[in-house]
Design a protein around this nucleic acid. Structure first.
Length: 213
DNA sequence: GCCCAGGTGGGTA
DNA sequence: TACCCACATGGG
């Protein structure tokens, strides 16, 4: 796995994830990007910024329909408005609205609590932990899974946890490394492993594999 | 027009 | 547990 990291890092350079100004903005982005392109999320976040809504308390006080209208470009906007509210309610109830306090919770315990919030599944929970909280977890997304499946690292049916365990076992490291590795997988997926079409011939990982045979 | 995008929750067998 | 389906906009 560390060779994959090296190959992708050389080919793509530093990814500088997560693009955001505050921790809360990362949390919001993590929810809004569910099954949605980042360009759509950017528009939604710009709307929230203009409305001065990128704060837990402001979001908590806003009505769900108003919130939904602001995040409309990100798709699934009614669902996601509920999800954002659910997180803010959770943050307020459990940590007095403080992300700093929330992230002082031990990783495993916080992950379980996040998974209990409506709208937060494993990928969103791990994105929040890693990118907003700098906890050392690896985020598994569609691209990561697709690439590892096509290269025979995991089976077609591998679960989220199985893929995550594989990477953790094979690539022990710190938050900064997991941060970069995931970002590299996503960029590599966008470039060479999109949908049903795989541009494997141009993928640096494929070249690396051929040369090492 | 079609396919795809940095998933999750709910229902059914 | 293992499948299905709804959720919805915007870009290529």
């Amino acid at each position: 796995m560390s060779e994959y990291y090296n190959q992708l890092s050389t080919a793509l350079g530093p990814q500088n994830w997560w693009p955001a100004q505050t921790q809360f903005e990362i949390v919001v982005g993590a929810i809004l990007t569910q099954n949605t392109s980042w360009t759509n999320v950017e528009q939604a976040i710009a709307n929230l910024r203009s409305a001065r809504m990128l704060f837990p308390l402001a979001m908590l006080k806003a009505s769900t329909p108003r919130l939904a209208r602001l995040i409309r470009p990100s798709g699934y906007f009614r669902q996601k408005a509920k999800k954002l509210k659910a997180f803010c309610k959770f943050l307020s109830a459990e940590y007095g609205g403080s992300l700093t306090r929330m992230f002082r919770t031990p990783t495993a315990e916080l992950r379980e609590k996040l998974l209990g919030v409506f709208g937060i599944g494993p990928e969103t929970a791990d994105s929040i932990l890693l990118y907003a909280g700098k906890h050392p977890v690896f985020v598994v997304d569609t691209y990561t899974k697709r690439i590892l499946q096509r290269h025979g690292w995991v089976s077609e049916k591998a679960s989220y946890d199985e893929v995550q365990q594989l990477v953790l076992a094979d690539f022990p490291g710190e938050a900064a490394h997991y941060n970069e590795l995931h970002a590299l997988f996503v960029q590599a997926g966008k470039n060479w492993c999109r949908g049903r079409e795989a541009l494997c011939a141009q993928c640096p990982l494929e070249r690396f594999l051929k040369e090492s045979r």
